[in-house]
């Protein structure tokens, strides 16, 4: 599903990641683990084709990111859910509209959108928050809204970039539980974190990074 073939990403200020060579299959839960600045976010950005390798190749759903056209990138992103450290929710619309947005972009009928949003909100325990605005919620709730938005299209891959960074331990545990539940339903989850305790709590394949290089892969 995801293939990194000797991929190197070089910024003007220096190298971000080098010589990445690994594959991730559709049924995996993978931690990308490393300290700040080790290249975790760069890997996720290369998967959702926001960044492109200077050397080597990155293939997602067999689509080579270096040769993908904008239309093809959009199509890949429709199959990839993303949860960010800063949530990236739109403050000018309520939570319902935030969650519904990916379905509306894909042209789904309003009735179907409504039933899917409500069902998912029920699952995540955020139904009562649907008509609030993101800034009216706690960090944990906002992250659940972001998770709902990422999951609403039933993506094949879910990327989570330090989703618990700004959350307290209770909210972090909740989010982790949700990510595992989502994985158990068949979604490939890639979780970037610098917190070691998650790896011990819920062990899974771990790709460890230091200064942009893979130093261990427990696959």
């Amino acid at each position: 599903m995801i293939n990194f073939k000797k991929a190197t990403l070089r910024y003007d200020s220096g190298i971000s990641v080098r010589n990445l060579d690994f594959s991730i299959e559709g049924d995996e839960f993978v931690y990308i683990y490393g300290p700040s600045g080790s290249g975790k976010s760069s890997i996720l950005k290369m998967i959702y084709m926001d960044l492109f390798p200077n050397e080597g190749e990155v293939l997602v759903f067999d689509q080579n990111s270096s040769s993908a056209k904008r239309r093809e990138i959009a199509r890949v992103r429709q199959q990839v859910g993303m949860v960010f450290e800063g949530f990236k929710l739109l403050a000018d619309r309520d939570n319902y509209c935030n969650i519904a947005l990916p379905l509306e972009i894909q042209g789904m009928k309003a009735d179907d959108v409504h039933s899917r949003v409500v069902r998912l909100a029920d699952d995540l325990g955020i139904r009562s928050r649907l008509h609030h605005f993101p800034q009216e919620l706690s960090g944990g709730e906002q992250q659940r809204i972001a998770l709902a938005r990422a999951m609403i299209t039933s993506p094949k891959i879910l990327l989570a970039d330090e989703p618990t960074a700004h959350l307290d331990s209770k909210a972090s545990t909740d989010i982790m539980e949700w990510l595992w539940k989502i994985h158990q339903k068949g979604t490939c989850v890639i979780f970037a974190t610098h917190k070691e305790h998650f790896l011990k709590q819920e062990p899974a394949r771990t790709i460890s990074l230091i200064a942009g290089e893979i130093v261990a892969d427990s696959a």
């Binding site: 429709q78 199959q79 990236k88 972009i105 938005r149």
Partner: peptide, 16 residues
């Protein structure tokens, strides 16, 4: 800007 960035990340084509 925020809206444009968000919808691009959510898989909107340039046309959308």
């Amino acid at each position: 800007y925020e809206f444009i960035e968000a919808v691009r990340l959510l898989g909107a084509s340039d046309f959308m």
